[in-house]
Write a protein that binds this DNA or RNA. Structure first.
Length: 257
DNA sequence: ATGGTCGGCAACCGA
């Protein structure tokens, strides 16, 4: 079972690239962030023709998440069911006994800003979502744009960047609390020393070539699923892209036999 | 790297 995460930065603009990538990689489940589309305008028809079921929760202009899957999910939930749901940042789907949770964690703008406090609150709320709704023993995969690079290996210049948004001790504390509940970073499990990045700011010229990147997109799983994982990788193949953007793919494979 | 470029959407906001 192959699962992927992709921050599309506008699914309607990314459809040609997305459909081509689905056809070549044939992932079983794809978690999308920043779809930037209201539910009524989600491109269901095109994705159905591409062979994928669509579960989505969007809003006008900003945010928006979706889970595409080869098979029909038995259950779909979106949001926390509280005031955090003003922004479309969480969707979950159940496939048999496996829950897949897709999050677009707030970016946080600047550590001195109100948006940064909101980011920390959002991560804490997500921690409650997991601890109240699941057990660490459950088969659960958490995928998404976390907007946090957890370790020094995950940013291009850890000394200079420490304290920046997406690489900040308070973010590390918040995310570690969720991790300690029962998650394993599947990419790190398979690549403990690999300093690869999932995100390159498209405002930085030749960021990919120069290695000016961050690993902020993740596939984490509970222990029972981590044991079944057989590999994880980041797809930076330029073949897929028509123009520089925040093209972010991370994938993991699980043996569910 | 300290400016730049995207996407959405109709002026600028968010990343």
């Amino acid at each position: 079972m192959k699962i992927a995460s992709f921050n599309v930065n506008g699914i309607r603009a990314r459809m040609p690239v997305l459909v081509r990538w689905l056809a070549s990689e044939k992932p079983d489940i794809v978690c999308l962030q920043e779809t930037k589309v209201q539910d009524a305008d989600f491109p269901v028809t095109e994705l159905t023709e591409a062979g994928y079921q669509c579960a989505y929760r969007g809003q006008k202009s900003y945010n928006g998440v979706a889970i595409l899957s080869r098979v029909v999910p038995e259950q779909v939930d979106a949001g926390f069911g509280d005031e955090f749901d003003k922004e479309a940042r969480l969707i979950a789907a159940r496939f048999g006994g496996l829950w897949v949770v897709n999050t677009y964690i707030p970016q946080g703008q600047d550590p001195a800003s109100e948006k940064f406090r909101y980011k920390l609150e959002w991560i804490a709320r997500l921690g409650r979502f997991f601890s109240e709704g699941f057990l660490p023993a459950d088969p659960l995969v958490w995928v998404g744009d976390f907007n946090v690079a957890p370790s020094p290996l995950d940013v291009y210049d850890p000394q200079t960047l420490l304290g920046s948004v997406c690489y900040h001790p308070e973010e590390h504390r918040a995310l570690s609390a969720v991790e300690r509940w029962g998650f394993v970073d599947i990419y790190r499990r398979h690549r403990p020393e690999d300093p690869s990045f999932s995100f390159f700011d498209y405002r930085v010229p030749n960021a990919v070539k120069r290695g000016i990147g961050w690993r902020i997109d993740h596939i984490w799983a509970t222990e029972s699923m981590a044991e079944k994982s057989t590999g994880a990788w980041i797809d930076l193949e330029p073949r897929t892209w028509e123009k520089p953007s925040d093209h972010t793919f991370i994938l993991a494979e699980f043996d569910l036999a």
